[in-house]
Amino acid sequence: MTKSSKHTILKTKHLSIGYKIKKGTFVIADNINLELKQGELIGLVGANGIGKSTLLRTLATIQEPLDGRIEINDILIENHTALDLAKTMSLVLTEQLMSKNLSVFELVALGRQPYTNWVGNLSEEDVSAVKKAIEHTNLTDLKHRKCFELSDGQLQKVMIARALAQDTDLIILDEPTTHLDMYHKAYILKLLQRLAKDTNKTILFSSHEIDLAIQLCDTMIVMTKDKVVSDSPCHLIEQGVFETLFPKDLIGFDKTTGSFRVKK
C-alpha cells in the first residue's frame, strides 16, 4: 500500500492558533496545513514556547482555533458530538492526575467511559479492551498496583494504555517523554511506534527528543517562528529544516548522524 492511498484521519486547513485577549487576538502560529494519515507515528518538534502545546490543545479541542478549519475523518471538528469525538480521539496530557489512588486496571478502565452505561459498569467487551490495552503496553504484572506506587515511566505507560483502551483512531500525546531517563524516553517512543504499526492508529506526540523522533517517526512536524512544516524525517533533513529550529550560536545539526552537536 502506498502512503497516499492511506485514509486521512485529521486534516487542518489554514489553521491559526493562539489566544483571544481583550483587544483582538494573540497569534502563536498561523496557516498551519497538516494531514495525519492512518497508522502513522507523527512527531511534533520545536523550541520551547514555540506553541507545540497550543497546537496540540487546539487539535484536542481544549482550546479554540483563531481561524481556519480542523477536519476529523472528513467532518469538521465542531460538527462532531462530544461523545463521537471521544470515540475518535484520545489524549495523554502533561497535567498531573488528581487522584492516584486507583489501581492500574481501574485507571485504564476509565478510558472506556464513552462506551459504558450511566453508572460506568464495564461490559465483557470493555474488560477485554482494557486487558488488551494493558497487554499492549506490557503492564500485565502491574495490573493491580495502585498508581501512586508507580514510577514516572510506568505511570506514563498507564496513561498510554488508558488512551488505547478508549479505542480511538487518533491518540494525541503532549510531551510523553518529559521527566523520563534516556532509556525510558526511547522505550516510550519505541512503544508508540509499535502501537501505531500493530493497532493501525494514528499517533501524534510532541517531544524535545528530536534525534529519537527522527529515527522512529513516519512523519515529523517542525514548528519554527516563521512556519510549520510537515514531511518525512529524511526529506526534512535534506531540506535543512532542522537547522532552522534553534539559534545557531550553541548547537548545530549534523546531517550525517541526524542529531544535534554542541559547537566547540
Partner: peptide, 24 residues
Amino acid sequence: AIFSIKALNTFLLGENYAKSLGLD
C-alpha cells in the same frame, strides 16, 4: 449524586481528560 458517579470518577483524571472522554 448517584447519577453523577460516572462523572465523578472521570473527574479523578482532571477536567481536560474528562472532556476528552466525552463528558459534558
